[in-house]
Amino acid sequence: MTAQTMTEPAPPPAKPRRPLLQSRVSGVLLVLALLVLWDLSARFWVDSTSWPTVTAVLAALFSGSADLFAAFTSTISLMLKGFVLGALLGVAGGIAIGLSPFLRRAFTPLLEFLRPLPVPGIVPPLILLLGIDDAMKITVVAFSTFFPVLINAAQGVRMVDPVLIDMARTFRHSRLRSMWQLTLPAALPYVFSGLRISLALALIVTVVAEMIAGGTGIGYYLMTMQYAMQPDRMYAGVVLLAATGYALNWLLLLAERRLLHWYSPG
């Protein structure tokens, strides 16, 4: 063995190839395969006017129906208002409960009493109090968003390393400065987990509220198309909702990666 070969650096280990089933391409292929199966079943196997082909649904989606996109815009506007309101209240409440054992003991029974309430169960009382306008729907969405964010934020605050808190006290950091520079950054991964859960809930709850007490929105649109026996337009609304949920989750993940670039989950 020569000196040259002894001093040559070893080649870097080859990166393991990502399994196909775990790749993003495989996810897209699975969706396409399901759509093809849907289309074939509607053409050859299912003899029903309530089960349109994929091409008919896509034609209804891209035909530019003003009613569909007006309903969609109304739903997204209500959802975002309720989501932002519930998220802000959830983060503030979660930090307060996480920092204060007194507040945690005082409010835990009330929160556990209200948290399991189903959305259809709270809509009728809210209709009596707020009517069937946008205020009721925003309140329902905020209510559903509030609890996952609050619970995750409180858990994130409680998971802060006590050694770091003692170190901040040693350096005589104020309570506000410690919360801003230590507690909140440490709790942010938990907060984003709550936000992702709440985002899906917000979209679902908005549609349900529009179905129960709506004159506008995608939920009301779906019910109208069902009664009008226009399944292609109804499924077009469903597909639009699915694509919207995927896009919103992707945007939230992108924001999480940008804001928490220092965080690497195990």
Rank of each mutant, 00 (worst) to 15 (best):
L201P: 01
T216D: 03
L240Y: 07
L199K: 01
V208S: 08
E112A: 05
P19A: 14
R258T: 02
D39Q: 06
M223L: 11
I197F: 02
T244W: 02
P189Y: 13
A10E: 02
L58A: 12
M159F: 11
L184A: 12
A200S: 12
L240R: 08
L128H: 07
T73A: 07
F62E: 04
L184S: 05
T224Y: 09
F146E: 07
I212P: 10
H173C: 10
A70V: 09
L259R: 12
E8Q: 10
I165R: 02
E8A: 05
F146N: 00
L103C: 03
T139F: 13
G94V: 05
G98L: 08
A71C: 02
L110R: 03
A66S: 12
R169M: 14
A202T: 06
L188F: 11
G121S: 15
P116R: 05
L188W: 10
V149L: 08
R17V: 01
S198R: 01
R177E: 13
L21E: 07
F146L: 07
P9N: 08
V141Y: 08
V54D: 07
T7R: 03
L32M: 11
F146W: 02
L222W: 11
R17F: 00
D133C: 01
R257K: 12
R175K: 14
A71W: 08
L114M: 14
M229K: 08
T7G: 05
W51F: 15
Q181C: 15
A60I: 09
A247Q: 00
R104F: 09
V238Q: 08
D47C: 00
K81C: 13
T5C: 00
A202E: 09
G217H: 08
R18G: 04
T5M: 00
L164W: 02
T5Y: 01
T224K: 06
T139L: 11
Q22G: 12
L259M: 10
M6G: 01
F146I: 04
G156L: 06
S48H: 14
L201R: 02
A3Y: 10
A96E: 08
A42R: 12
V163C: 07
P118H: 08
W38H: 06
L29T: 07
T5I: 01
L111T: 06
G94M: 01
T5Q: 10
D161I: 09
A60L: 08
P120I: 12
V160D: 03
R18N: 03
P13F: 13
L34R: 04
A255I: 10
N152F: 05
L29P: 00
H261Q: 00
Q226D: 10
V140F: 04
L114W: 07
F171Q: 14
A242C: 13
W51S: 13
N249E: 08
V25T: 15
I212K: 11
F171I: 11
T5K: 02
S48Q: 13
A209R: 00
R18C: 02
I76F: 10
P189G: 12
A228Q: 01
T170G: 03
V31F: 14
M179G: 13
A106Y: 09
L21Q: 15
S178H: 13
L195H: 10
V239L: 15
D67F: 06
Y221L: 04
K15N: 11
L222K: 07
L78Y: 04
S26T: 11
V91F: 11
S77A: 11
R158V: 12
T5R: 02
G219A: 04
S26K: 01
N152R: 15
A3E: 09
